[in-house]
Amino acid sequence: MQRSLSIEPEKCTGCLQCELACSLDNEGAFNPSKSRIRVFKFEDEGRFVPYTCTQCAEAWCLKACPVDAISLDPETGAKVVSDALCVGCKVCTIACPFGTINYNQDTGKVIKCDLCEGEPECATACPTDAITYIDANWTGLERMRAWAQRTDAGAGAAE
């Protein structure tokens, strides 16, 4: 069963532990500038929003790649870049509507979230559970539960 990254911005404090964990796993150093997940700060609103690839089922980056360097990991559903095949043409970075695949000028390849082979480091590192890794079919479950709790149907049954 596939799982998805679930992001709840209201829980984020902007600490960047996700970026640190991501860069360590992928780059072998603490280097937020190379993180596949980024936290955006909306200064005047006091909001922090982590953002990364949603792993589209029909992935535009994958379809756009002229050398088939992006493939589907059937286990996790992640769209994964092969460094051996990527030629750094950047067409995928144009194709992606969300901007979550980007060019790394140090290597001449593109980088994107690959779900860390099913154990996303960002979710493990997040101290506030703003990023979790949950059932891909039920990413709305907690929101459903919250709304369900607000209905008055069955109220009083526990009394």
Binding site: T13, L16, Q17, L20, E45, G46, F48, P127
Partner: peptide, 19 residues
């Protein structure tokens, strides 16, 4: 108070964001 905020790598998050 709008929310709390963390400095780099901080898992405490004592910073205040106010309006």
């Amino acid at each position: 108070l709008i929310t709390n905020a963390a400095c780099f790598a901080c898992t405490i998050g004592c910073g205040r964001v106010s309006q």
